[in-house]
């Protein structure tokens, strides 16, 4: 038996989600925004594993889903950083406030 109830894990996930959301909205450089996205993905993974453990511990599909989430998060971070480097070369800035123009 787990002494810690499911709600406790979900509350931790909720707090992580809120903090990640704040980081995404309020941070100014693209790298920090990507870090916030990683925190949000972490929170989602934690929720998934908590639900897996308490509701369907026999079916491991939830863990595979979390693996997929982590993989896709890694890919989008790599592509996002490459984009950021490209934008820096043409705009000379990394502040997301200045990424205003959809210009080649």
């Amino acid at each position: 038996m787990s002494a810690v109830p499911l709600s406790a894990y979900l509350v931790v996930g909720a707090l992580l989600f809120a903090i990640g959301l704040y980081a995404i909205v309020a941070q100014r450089t693209a790298v920090m925004v990507l870090m916030g996205i990683e925190v949000v993905l972490n929170a989602v993974g934690l929720n998934m594993v908590a639900f897996w453990r308490f509701l369907r511990p026999d079916d491991y599909s939830a863990q595979i889903f979390v693996i997929a989430i982590v993989t896709i998060g890694a890919i989008e971070m790599a592509v996002g950083l490459a984009l950021m480097m490209l934008i820096y070369r043409s705009q000379r800035t990394v502040k997301v406030d200045d990424f205003e123009e959809l210009r080649g």
Binding site: A14, L15, A18, I19, Y22, V25, A26
Partner: peptide, 21 residues
């Protein structure tokens, strides 16, 4: 370090945390 949206982003983050928890 932060965008001008920080003021309401803080409240938004707090609101999300409080509502979910």
């Amino acid at each position: 370090m932060t965008t001008p949206a920080r003021k309401w982003a803080r409240h938004f983050g707090w609101a999300v945390a409080v509502v979910l928890s």
